[in-house]
Design a protein around this nucleic acid. Structure first.
Lengths: 215, 215, 215, 215
DNA sequence: AATGAATGAGCCTTCATTCAT
DNA sequence: GATGAATGAAGGCTCATTCAT
């Protein structure tokens, strides 16, 4: 009945992987150590043994999910810095939305759950990790608004764009989980077409930025 | 320690009130019947006595919170139907954001928790209750886009506006709850100034709608 | 919402009636005061008010059921004392079995439950009440066995007959309650034909008594 | 207070053993997991850990009790198939009665409780397990009645015998449990002398079968 | 090093009973 | 006299964690 001795680090990665999925789907509290260990084909005590507890596993698994996402979706969005500013904005938005929409990415789902039911365990790490991701976006906004734009103003625009990236996709996921037939038409299929969504957000936001610029 | 036997509706309302707060703060699963009863100065069995169980209390307390919010924030936003369309849009946005930002309103917080960790208990009621709230917003968007606008297009714009209403305020609440000092400057004070936020979202979105209109 | 003031003894009888049914169906422990009161269209506190508690209601309701049964099924079985001994035996057996099989008689069902899960509350009353019921049966057995029969022997035969009266009907009730299809054929329809059953038991037992007589 | 970690089957068997006793004495509903665990010198969560819940423990413990009984009391009663039919009948009856009377056998007590307050959990298993036990008895009855005997008739005789086996012993147990002194003389000591009882039932029933045969 | 048996705290729920009205 | 709101004890179950092996 003994597991084939596979380094021990093997199990650890399995646990991280399983933990990401479960935490992303259920959040910290509703996720159970038992389920995670089972999904990872590991002993029920493995989580405590390898990570010291549920909390540490939570933090570690978010880090793991984040770094995995980072590799798949490079923060530059694949657009060169020489491209026109509109194109770069579009790149940023598409990059963020793709990442959120990717069913293999778990970091944003975990953030969502953490925002809804804060454990306080991720607060620091998230801000340190996520903030830099939005730095290029801030630069672009500032470039579009001009040098004289107030910091306050930049923040407002950044918020508008961020919110547009998050909102529809989370809603889509919720409706996917709900059993009843969706009554609000036109939203749920959006998840399947991130490109259309990103196009819209880009055009919408470009106009928004420019309109508020002259305010 | 014995309660004076009153109407019986007294305790029931106390329970609903306490339940709203606790469910809004912790979500269904993390909330405990014990805490709710304690906050309502009632016995631990009171919740089951009056509502039959935690689940029924959950549904009932959302209904309670929703109706209370509805009274405080009339959906028309206080703007007459004769006003210019821009003004009406601003009224809608301000109404929604005020509602979400109000620390005495619990319905949107509960929805947020429900979206993150669906119990399935609110799915039907929410959609029946919330959807009508956004109907005037849809009308306004359609008015701005013109009659020829595709349904699909209206939905995208609606989503953009909705997301901008939700996003920043939820974020703000999260940071308020988090223990660590907020590292992202410029966002959290926004909660205190809903008007500024609504002004921005209105101008930003008006431009966005008009820009995508000619698409 | 107030009950029409109907003597107060009205409610008491309703309670007794409901209690018989519920106690007969579920036994003391599984029966709940709430269900009894509901069935009796009475307040949940009525049982305590009128009887002082669940236990007292239990005892009282058994007495009620027993006396009601006694009226419906006179212990003599309707056979005159002049009839031949075989006929009188048949009368006794038919009387007992009819009583047990009658769906309106609750006393034997309550006894059965009490035997399975003794509360100790009925022990005395049952023996005082039921024992006389079997006195004529004992006489008949003694008559059949002859004067020289040992007490011990009479008891054995009495037991054989009693058991045959109880057994099949309890079994029949059980199978009626079970959801799965009955796998033992030929027993459950017996409940519907008490006469056939009583005929069999009488003939079977007469032979039995006579056979052991010469032992 | 910590248990020495043994096989794990150790505790499981302790639990089964304790469960048999408690379930046999109190029935499913009145038995508490706490009492069972305490009797098994195990933690209160042990029952759930090893069996998944009270219901599963109930089913499993009945199976355990049944198989233990089966070993102690072989269904053939120790009489060879070549013996005269009367002797074989006696063997059957003695086997069944010994089993029921054995204070270490819990399966029939559990069945009795289950019949009085059906949980529905044992219905299937009981019929699958108990029915074969009575098959040889049926054969013997048919042999005694002759080939032309109606199925219906066989069933009646089987019932008569079964009832005589069950009845007196259950009654005896009840009186043993009752607190008040037994008022019905001559029955309770029977438990101590199963052989006498079985002799009587055999003779009584043999005569009964033969008497009804010519009907 | 790694397992799985075992634990104890905590949660939701049920129910007979009590008490103010 | 009679009601129904309210209580507290108890039960089954879940789950993160610990410990002997």
């Amino acid at each position: 009945m003994r597991k084939q001795r596979s380094d021990g680090q093997e199990t650890k990665r399995h646990l991280l992987c399983a933990a990401c999925k479960v935490f992303a789907e259920k959040g910290f509290r509703e996720a159970t150590v038992a389920e995670i260990c089972q999904k990872a084909n590991a002993n029920i005590a493995a989580a405590n043994y390898h990570f010291g507890g549920k909390e540490a596993l939570y933090v570690e698994s978010w880090r793991y999910a984040f770094e995995k996402s980072l590799k798949t979706f490079p923060p530059d969005g694949g657009i060169s810095a020489d491209a026109p500013v509109e194109e770069r904005l579009h790149g940023q938005i598409l990059s963020i939305m793709s990442r959120i929409a990717d069913p293999e990415s778990y970091d944003f789902d975990m953030i969502h759950k953490e925002m809804a039911n804060p454990t306080g365990l991720l607060t620091g790490i998230i801000q340190e990790s996520i903030h830099p991701l939005f730095k290029p976006l801030i630069s672009i906004i500032r470039e579009l608004l001009g040098d004289k734009a107030a910091e306050h103003h930049v923040n407002l625009c950044q918020m508008s764009i961020r919110a547009q990236c998050f909102g529809p996709l989370l809603r889509a996921r919720w409706q996917k989980k709900s059993f009843r037939s969706p009554k609000i038409p036109g939203i749920e299929p959006l998840l399947d077409d991130v490109k259309t969504l990103a196009d819209h957000v880009t055009r919408f936001s470009l106009a928004g930025i420019r309109a508020t610029q002259e305010g």
